[in-house]
């Protein structure tokens, strides 16, 4: 049986050019036409290939600064790749400490906008609207602008939208650091329920337990290269070793 592809990455890489003096105005660019800015190249991701199939839960391990976040931004289609190409089959949602929400909009409007961006129709959003609000525990503040919310409230709303609306491919970057203990318990419960079934999930976490429990396959990254991609236990072993 051939499995359906969710993400196909072919020889992708990413290099950031960090310029020392900023040439970001017309004036600057004109006056320094023959004096190009000095840039420092940072190789964030070295060339790599891999495939992720629909319904898989993939763990992503590596020490700080090894390129995990850059990789998921590339895979989510937020950053373009410098080389090669990425095929993404479906909508993506990248979650770290928040999802795309405008602070100028109310919680209600944000729910509709975010869920719509994730591919839901208005009717479908109407149906899950109460579920989102109750899960986020924000019933009283539903028509307040979220700029008046505490950071915990914003994070809860974001998580609730992500859980209930959900994209085809979800990138979860250290999401269990959100909210108080009660909310965290709820969040983990969601994870254990049928939520991830049928969805493709890429989980970035420093919690070995979480990765071990939920991931079919795990990738281990070091200094911008993909060192290992396969068996979860083996990847965890390599990561632990790297930390010593």
């Amino acid at each position: 049986m051939t499995k359906a592809l969710a993400i196909q990455a072919k020889s992708i890489s990413k290099t950031f050019r960090i310029s020392e003096d900023s040439h970001n105005t017309v004036k600057h660019r004109l006056f320094n036409l023959f004096n190009p800015p000095r840039t420092k190249k940072v190789e964030a991701l070295k060339t790599m290939d891999f495939e992720i199939y629909k319904g898989e839960c993939i763990g992503l391990l590596g020490r700080n600064g090894c390129g995990k976040s850059t990789l998921i931004k590339l895979l989510a289609g937020v950053y373009p790749s410098d080389t090669g190409n990425i095929n993404i089959f479906g909508t993506t949602l990248l979650m770290n400490l928040g999802v795309g929400m405008s602070h100028e909009l109310t919680a209600r409007e944000n729910i509709y906008v975010s869920a719509s961006v994730l591919g839901l129709k208005i009717k479908e959003i109407d149906e899950i609207f109460d579920k989102i609000v109750d899960f986020a525990e924000l019933r009283e503040f539903i028509d307040s602008k979220i700029k008046f919310f505490s950071s915990g409230m914003v994070a809860r709303l974001a998580f609730s939208i992500a859980v209930n609306a959900g994209a085809d491919i979800m990138f979860l970057d250290e999401i269990f650091a959100v909210g108080d203990m009660k909310f965290q318990e709820k969040a983990i419960k969601v994870f254990e329920s049928s939520w991830i079934e049928g969805k493709t999930v890429i989980l970035v976490s420093h919690s070995m337990d979480t990765i071990k429990k939920y991931c079919n396959r795990t990738a281990f990254m070091k200094n911008g290269s993909l060192v290992y991609f396969g068996n979860t236990d083996k990847a965890i072993e390599m990561y632990v070793e790297d930390n010593h």
């Binding site: 937020v78 993506t92 990248l94 795309g100």
Partner: peptide, 10 residues
């Protein structure tokens, strides 16, 4: 409108 495209492939 960064919030619209920063977290998804819209």
């Amino acid at each position: 409108k960064k919030y619209l495209y920063e977290y998804s492939n819209m």
